[in-house]
Amino acid sequence: MNLFRKKTAPGPTAAADALTGVPSPLVSLAKTAKVSLAKNDLADLRAAVYLVVDRSLSMSGYYADGSVQHLADQALGLSVNLDDDGTVPMLFFDDRPYPIVEISLDHYDGVVAQQHKRHGGGSTMGGTRYADAMRAITDHYADCRARGTIDPALVLFQTDGAPQDRAAAQLELARASEHPLFWAFIGFGPTPVPFLQGLDDLPGRAVDNASYFHAGARPTNVPDADLYDGITSEVSPWLAAARANGILR
């Protein structure tokens, strides 16, 4: 999605045109995402999709086995149903956030490996700090809103463990609850991440702006439908709450 262009309501052919120009490897993902959106009363939703990916050292295996690239593909499959140009701003983080880059329908294959290598590959993977990455996304989106964007955004935030900056991360999620941003936390790893479960239920927010789905130790084995349901199942209640509280028109 071109986040700096003011959006208008989709026309009657928007749904029919959703797969126009979608590369064949992504068509199945896009169709599966469409079913999940419809199941959760989101068939008419217009939204940006962000992808935030953990680049801490413990994630090295997930870069090597294609799990992170598959998540990027899944993000695009979701995005083509929600916006008008099928682009997803992607941010890597470890001890710090890296520059936001866009993945798109004509630039997605191998993009995770390219960006990972660009930042030094496995030899530079660091720790796990959420807060600065979350702030970068919130500030990026707030800037887009100031420039005229009217659509909400879904942030797919992937990690395999709790952060070293827990209190700061909680504060950032509470801060972000004042914006039309929904945070779909996605856990990788053999066991669920209690901290992410806690963020899902965090008190002190303007609205409940988060969900948590655990993709397990082998995320590429998780059915795409399950992931999309995990992302979308709590979005509709959030939209209602955000509208009721004046966060979203």
Rank of each mutant, 00 (worst) to 15 (best):
V68S: 07
L202V: 11
Q69L: 02
H107T: 01
T32R: 05
F213W: 06
H107A: 15
P194E: 07
S79E: 15
D54L: 03
A33L: 08
T138C: 12
F157S: 09
S233A: 11
A215H: 02
V235W: 13
T32F: 04
A176C: 02
S211K: 05
V101L: 10
G198K: 11
N245T: 08
T232W: 00
D132S: 08
L248T: 01
L173G: 08
R249C: 00
C144R: 15
G126Q: 09
L199A: 12
V88F: 03
R147I: 02
L196D: 09
K7N: 06
M90V: 12
D54Y: 07
S123K: 13
N81R: 11
V27A: 13
Q158A: 15
R5V: 15
V80S: 08
H116K: 14
F92P: 00
A174V: 13
I103W: 05
S56L: 10
D109T: 12
R249G: 13
L29R: 07
D151L: 07
G120Y: 07
A136E: 14
A225E: 06
H214W: 11
A133N: 07
F4L: 14
G204V: 05
A184H: 05
A72K: 09
F4E: 11
R218A: 10
Q74T: 02
A142H: 07
A169C: 07
K7T: 09
A131I: 04
S233Y: 08
D84N: 14
R205G: 04
H179A: 13
E102P: 03
A136P: 04
D17L: 10
V111T: 15
A169R: 04
A244E: 11
A225G: 00
Q158F: 03
W183C: 04
Q164W: 09
A33N: 12
S79P: 06
S58F: 05
D165V: 05
M134P: 02
F93I: 03
A15V: 09
K31P: 01
L19N: 07
G122H: 10
L248E: 09
G121C: 08
L91N: 01
A225W: 01
Q74N: 10
P180Y: 06
R166E: 15
V155N: 02
V111L: 14
G120P: 13
